[in-house]
Design a binder for these strands. Structure first.
Length: 593
RNA sequence: GCGGGUGUAGCUCAGUGGUAGAGCAUCUCCUUGCCAAGGAGAAUGUCGCGCGUUCGAAUCGCGUCACCCGCUCCA
């Protein structure tokens, strides 16, 4: 491991330690030895998460006119997961390479020709040993020495540091076995013998109903999005909204991750915050507005326009989500990855990953995908229930089109279908049927999906706020000071209230008074133990942005002009200002909300 | 899932077969006129869990669980 990697691992360990010590995040079921890939939020973590949830919910719903909330169940009819494709893609039969443990879908193994080579094991100068039989396919035409080199490399990469350098690994008991043709029992890339086909189900299975038979099987949702799609029509009918509009949801989702890792970053139970923003198909925009607005560098994305197609809506949401992250203090550490056509799922038109810098690497915080009408159409087909909306404006505009104009649109679409990179082109009859519905004002909305993980966001916030500085006191003693530079909006404790000294009843009484004044409006922490400096430090460590100290000036000792004023200390920089008690509330509220 | 590492007090760690330790943190009292001050005292561990070897196990063996690192996976 490089020095950087070691430092980053050490930093991550310090963050995990702080999280436990100060009550942000605990291991689940710790007294029983934990539970893999599951974490609990302690008092401060719960506040932090709640602040993030509120910030997101407000940004999505309260601050907008075009997004509605939903709170759906974790358990759903299992037919949902068949329609969405999750049952299929999350429950593949996989076979594992015995050499490298690379997994491959059982039905995706290409036939291989070559000679089977067996080894009884391997060992390295480092003392590392592999004590099991290795069976590898030497491909047709592969030279024996380059084959051995390749096997050593593969073994080394799987063994990690313990095995040392690949060229120093000794392969034991080499024996040539049979030649094979068209075998599907060896990994296409590595040549390692494949184990038996086993299902790898990433969805958590459970039984709905006490009899627990196979008929009762359902799943804990692996994502919150499907509930939004499944309830799309109900929300639409109940809310007097028109496309474009969105439905957002916050909720738990579950995945049997193969390898939960990086603290809470990849866990088996996690909280998603998702928006499905429904828009008109580009063809509808073309009919209504004459043409779809094109994006160009520097385009104004601040206000949605009627002539926006999916591309501009997609970019708009990337912009909106970026502003959100800036508002909670993550502005400077974001990166963007625009998926290439090869990366994209066949139904997706574009997808941007918003990445964030973590000690363990730059990892995804949120994905913003333009998914076309894939999801609603899938549910429409599987359920037999129409997911179309009727658009009066579109119907009126389409009625003004000539037959030639209509046919031109159809031809344009047919050409586009033919030049698709992924997926089969839509049949001409289906395209014509779709346009027929469109010209009457009916379509299945398309969707832009900004989907984020709340736990990742919380971890990103903590990790990026973590700061250590070394301080030397008068006696030359060095100590490390830890400060969590949390944005005031997300900080679990907004302000600490301290009497300068606890053995002066007047100071204590006044401090209790200030505490009572503020605590109804925000999370306030009262502390009178230990020296004032230590109390500041305790709050710095958990990211409390403000401290209020009641001192002798507050009592009017230095004259009436300072009576009922307090010291307001700012966490970052430690600067202090004198504030009237009567001004505290509005001054603080402006910062923390 | 594979390979490697780790697991002792709330945290960081020392303790290589013979009575369980330190620093920091916590709590109480005293003291303290603004950035982890000082003094006195207290509490805190089935040494991750289980089974074994041994007169005796935190220490040795086997198993297991969790976490970390590297592969792998990541709709």
């Amino acid at each position: 491991m490089s020095t950087d990697a070691k430092n980053n691992t050490a930093l991550m360990e310090k963050i995990v330690s702080l999280c436990k010590r100060r009550g942000f995040i605990f291991q689940s079921s710790e007294i029983y030895g934990g539970c893999g890939g599951v974490w609990d939020y302690g008092p401060l973590g719960a506040e932090l998460k709640r602040n993030l949830r509120t910030a997101w919910w407000n940004a999505m719903t309260r601050d907008r006119e075009d997004v509605l909330g939903l709170d759906a169940s974790i358990l759903m009819n299992p037919a949902i997961w068949k329609a969405s494709g999750h049952v299929e893609t999350f429950a593949d039969l996989m076979r594992e390479c015995s050499l490298t443990n690379k997994r491959v879908r059982a039905d995706h193994v290409d036939p291989q020709d070559g000679v089977i080579m067996n080894y009884t094991g391997a060992e390295a100068a480092t003392g590392w040993k592999l004590d099991r039989v290795i069976s590898v396919l030497m491909k047709k035409g592969e030279h024996i020495e380059s084959f051995r080199k390749r096997v050593r490399l593969l073994i080394a990469s799987n063994a990690g540091e313990a095995a040392g350098k690949p060229e120093e690994i000794v392969l034991l008991g080499e024996a040539k076995a049979d030649a094979v043709e068209g075998s599907i029992d060896y990994h296409p890339e590595t040549g390692g013998a494949l184990g038996p086909a086993r299902p790898f189900n990433l969805m958590l299975k459970t039984y709905l109903g006490p009899t627990a038979t196979e008929d009762d099987v359902t799943y804990l949702r692996p994502e919150t999005a499907q509930a939004i799609f499944a309830q799309f029509k109900n929300v639409f009918d109940a809310s007097r909204v028109k496309v474009p509009f969105g439905i957002c949801q916050i909720g738990k989702a579950f995945r049997n991750e193969v390898t939960p890792k990086n603290f809470t970053f990849r866990s088996r139970e996690f909280e998603q915050i998702e928006l499905e923003f429904f828009i008109k198909p580009d063809e509808a925009i073309e009919i209504i507005s004459g043409e779809v607005a094109a994006w160009s560098e520097g385009a104004d994305l601040s206000e949605p326009q009627a002539n926006w197609g999916w591309d501009l809506w997609h970019r708009y949401w990337v912009d909106q989500r970026t502003k959100f992250y800036e508002g909670i203090g993550l502005g400077g550490v974001l990166e963007y990855y625009w998926q290439t056509p090869e990366d994209l799922a066949h139904y997706a038109r574009a997808c941007v990953d918003i990445l964030c810098n973590f000690p363990f690497g730059t990892e995804e915080l949120e994905g913003i995908a333009a998914r076309g009408s894939f999801d609603l159409t899938a549910h429409q087909n599987a359920s037999g229930k129409s997911q179309e909306v009727f658009d009066e404006e579109l119907k009126v505009a389409a009625a003004k089109l000539t037959d030639e104009q209509k046919e031109a649109m159809i031809q344009k679409r047919l050409a586009a279908e033919q030049s698709k990179v992924k997926g089969a082109p839509m049949a001409e009859a289906d395209v014509r049927a779709w346009f027929e519905r469109l010209f009457k004002g009916n379509y299945v909305p398309h969707v832009i999906e900004p989907s984020a993980g709340l736990d990742r966001m919380a971890l990103a916030i903590i990790a990026n706020a973590y700061e250590e500085t070394e301080k030397t006191d008068e006696k030359g003693k060095k100590e490390v000071i830890t400060v969590l530079k949390l944005h005031p909006r997300v900080a679990p404790i907004k302000v600490g209230v301290f009497p300068l000294l606890k053995n002066k009843p007047e100071l204590v009484a006044k401090a209790r008074e200030v505490y009572a004044l503020l605590k109804r409006h925000m999370n306030v922490f009262y502390d009178e133990t230990a020296s004032i400096g230590r109390r500041y430090a305790r709050q710095d460590e958990v990211g409390t942005p403000f401290g209020i100290t009641i001192d002798f000036d507050t009592l009017g000792e230095k004259g009436p002009e300072l009576l009922d004023t307090v010291t307001l200390r700012h966490r970052d920089g430690g600067e202090q200002e004198r504030v009237k008690i009567s001004d505290l509330l509005w001054k603080l509220l402006a910062e923390v909300s």
